[in-house]
């Protein structure tokens, strides 16, 4: 869909923790948005026309609204603008934008998503769409790297997907987890190094540039072809 400018209004805010929140916007004019999972929108954040981009984290099968995951820690212009919004406030948006979308099915053995931090945003949209709408039956695995337990969110939502879809697996990885953290510790790359990664898999990477570089190198060393690794650098 060709990007267009539209108006949306703030319908809900969900505060996950000190670092992350989810914002829900209802479409005003037009009343409908069509996008592909993985795409993003660009929002005007001040009177000079300055804009900030955010990946849509909701399922594209919902057309009257869209959801954005916000990382508050930069405390930049975009974060400040969004935090100051009141319910019902309208925003000027451009979208949908971006080419980081689900690749055509080439019959790969498995689909693997690897994210750090807010890089989870486009993957939530992709995973929901794959499982709920496309009825994907191949194994779908998500690796998500964060720093501390208190940064975690959506873990119950992803666990619900694990319970509902037997082909979905979720591996949260904490780089600075407490001693009590029972699951993968270290960087997400460390976790991947000890997991079986199919050479004939379709891989999606999103998050910090260093992670993408390191994981890409690891995947290529395991026989994954470059065309099967798709990535978007967030920071």
């Amino acid at each position: 869909m060709k990007p267009q400018r539209f108006i949306a209004k703030l319908a809900d805010k969900e505060f996950f923790n000190e670092k992350f929140s989810k914002y829900v916007f209802e479409m005003e004019e037009p009343h409908r948005i069509d996008f592909e999972s993985g795409q993003y929108v660009s929002i005007t954040v001040d009177e000079t026309g300055d804009r900030r981009s955010y990946s849509v984290c909701s399922n594209p099968d919902t057309h009257h609204s869209f959801e954005l995951l916000i990382d508050h820690s930069p405390q930049g212009k975009g974060t400040t603008f969004l935090q100051n919004l009141k319910f019902g406030d309208e925003i000027d948006v451009m979208g949908p934008l971006g080419r980081f979308v689900l690749a055509p099915d080439k019959g790969e053995d498995e689909i693997v998503f690897i994210a750090t931090g807010s890089g989870i945003a486009p993957f939530r949209s992709m995973i929901l769409y794959l499982l709920q709408d496309l009825g994907e039956k191949r194994p779908v695995t998500l690796y998500w790297g964060l720093r501390h337990e208190e940064n975690l969110f959506w873990q119950n939502d992803f666990q619900d997907l694990v319970d509902e879809y037997e082909n979905f697996k979720f591996h949260p990885v904490l780089s600075r987890g407490s001693e009590e953290w029972p699951l993968c510790k270290g960087r997400v790359t460390d976790c991947l190094a000890v997991h079986d990664l199919p050479a004939k898999g379709c891989y999606y990477l999103c998050g910090n540039a260093k992670m993408i570089e390191d994981v890409n190198t690891l995947l290529l060393s395991k026989g994954v072809v470059a065309e099967d690794v798709h990535f978007e650098k967030f920071y």
Binding site: K2, P3, Y40, S42, L97, G98, R99, F100, E232
Partner: peptide
């Protein structure tokens, strides 16, 4: 450039 492609789309 990170190949987002929004410029090409617009």
């Amino acid at each position: 450039c990170i190949s987002a492609g929004s410029c090409e789309a617009i």
